[in-house]
Amino acid sequence: MIPYYYIASIALIALGFYIVIAKKNLIKIIIGLDMMDTGVNLLLISIGYVKGGTAPIENGNYPIYVDPIPQALVLTAIVIGVSVMALALSIAIGLYKNTGTVEIDEIRRLRE
């Protein structure tokens, strides 16, 4: 049986992917990319989840704790995602300064 949090994260990824391929506004596309990122992070973090587990600090009092590796992975992935988003937004600003619009169709028309 697939746990529901897997379905939620896959739904987030699919939604983000839909936004990226269907929307024509740059900012919306970047938001879609961010949603995909969030979905994957949710997927990763839920993989490490153990029912009733505490934070992964081993001191004997809490025998059940969640898998620490996915948490480390997600931390890294969040940092990477933030920097990619910042870069994508700055590229969007650059395009806006060059063309005065953030609509993909308009930009394509201006180039030709």
Partner: peptide, 29 residues
């Protein structure tokens, strides 16, 4: 304009690609 447009396409496809890589890693893990 050319540089930003190329970079934008690269960012979009590259981010989708890295999302897929991360999904693959998550599934293996």
């Amino acid at each position: 304009l050319k540089g930003f447009e190329g970079a934008l396409k690269y960012v979009i496809l590259g981010s989708i690609g890295s999302t897929f890589v991360l999904i693959g890693i998550a599934l293996i893990y």
